[in-house]
Design a protein around this nucleic acid. Structure first.
Lengths: 249, 249
DNA sequence: CGTAGTTTTGAACTACTTCAAGGCGCGTGG
DNA sequence: CCACGCGCCTTGAAGTAGTTCAAAACTACG
């Protein structure tokens, strides 16, 4: 019956991948022929799950990687002292679990922010692939190295930046990612709460509110509930770089 | 003559590595026989350089990795807007350049904090090794993954911690690393300036000074110039975790 | 509609920064 | 060898950005 399930996946899934607009983002591009079939056969689409579902919890045995197919999620780590930190937000095409690559347990927890669906890739399957296919492994390594750079930049920003810079930076990050997914980069729907945003950028939720209001007053954007529209992304970029002029009333 | 140089290295260097107390830290342990010879033959000890020497600058072509053999250094990145951020401090046995692995240019600059010496490993040599030896590549991948976790923790700390927590955390990080090198973990000689420390932990230099003074008043440590002695590492740890009680005067 | 949770707004407070000056150590040159 | 000068570190006082506390407004959901 396990066999049955596998067979089912093998039979139907290649089509699912081919239909998936995210395909080119998901797997290292050079994977072709037999290897592509290998991976796709083992990439299992999961049924959608509601908001607040834990894909896995921090410290749980590391069994699977996931691709976001639809919806969004957040990655959180629990620190000594019970503090909870939002490390990243996850959107379609993102690969989940790489921070725990080759680790026995998950280094973070991942929770959905809305009704979302994922594709599962069993750890054993990926590891087997990586240990047999050096070019794939190298591509993975490079992706991970890039991640380090990203994390470093995030840290640098947090060290030396004002509330305005942080929020502007967060919004532009979201905008860029939305754009890369073919969405309108100016119309942001914020699936995460203000608390999550605040935690992510290292501020109090109240401050995030105030900053958004200030931006709105300056006509850099408009906010309505969770819908946010960027009106002047160029100026936001200037602000995010910390090169903004003092404001003229 | 290039040949000559190589021959020279091949002949003399294995002895240098064998003598080096850091050997077990440097290379993936499983590297043995032919492969170990391959690496050691290409690991070139460089003559000591004075304080303030740039090993490489950010944006320069990525040509080599380095191991710290003696002394210490700092890794700094220059951000948009001309801000300079200290990303990490480097001590003997540390491998330098992994943040730029497989990158065309260096992602950061590395400067010595005192008279220091390094072993050079040409990028081409390491890359050639990694593309032919999958287990070595996997070990590298794992090290890099661990680095991500480290960077994340650093970021989390910066987000939600007070000046006391940051400084305590920095001191304990140093203490742990010194201990791992076989030094006295309580006697810290700070080769970096207060400015570097402040930058690293995301505070003003004056604040670092004041925190050290406060710690000294509380008899958690003693400071004299750059020599620092931890008196109560247990309490420092409590502070670094943000679980410190309000002080009783 | 009413209730619970989230977001916004306001006001007081605090921790850190910034600005400014003084001290200490170290290297250089007399 | 001692004195001078320069850079680094410390200390003090004032300023400020962001936090915290508290409460009102809004949204969403049953």
């Amino acid at each position: 019956m396990t066999n049955h399930q596998h067979l089912h996946v093998v039979k139907h899934h290649p089509a699912a991948c081919d239909e998936c607009r995210l395909r080119s983002h998901c797997m290292p591009d050079h994977l072709e022929g037999e290897l592509a079939a290998y991976v796709m056969a083992r990439l299992r689409p999961l049924p959608p799950v509601p908001r607040g579902t834990y894909l896995f919890r921090q410290g749980a045995p590391m069994t699977s990687y996931y691709f976001v197919r639809s919806g969004s999620a957040k990655s959180v780590v629990f620190e000594h002292g019970g503090r909870e930190s939002v490390m990243s937000f996850l959107f379609p095409s993102d690969l989940i679990g790489t921070a725990s690559l080759h680790q026995p347990t998950y280094q973070d927890a991942v929770v959905t922010l809305e009704r979302s669906s994922f594709c599962e890739l069993r750890a054993n399957d990926l590891h087997a692939l990586l240990s047999r296919d050096t070019p794939a492994l190298e591509q993975f390594l490079d992706k991970i190295v890039g991640r380090i750079t990203t994390e470093r930049h995030a840290r640098v920003r947090l060290e030396h930046s004002s509330a305005d810079e942080r929020v502007a930076d967060f919004l532009l990050e979201l905008s860029d990612r939305f754009g890369a997914l073919g969405r309108d980069p100016l119309a942001l729907y914020l699936t995460m709460s203000r608390y999550d945003i605040a935690n992510y950028v290292g501020l109090a939720p109240e401050t995030v509110s105030r900053v958004l209001r200030r931006f709105s007053d300056r006509e850099l954007l408009t906010v309505r509930h969770k819908e946010l529209t960027l009106r002047d992304p160029a100026r936001l970029r200037i602000i995010s770089l910390g090169e903004a002029q003092p404001e003229n009333p």
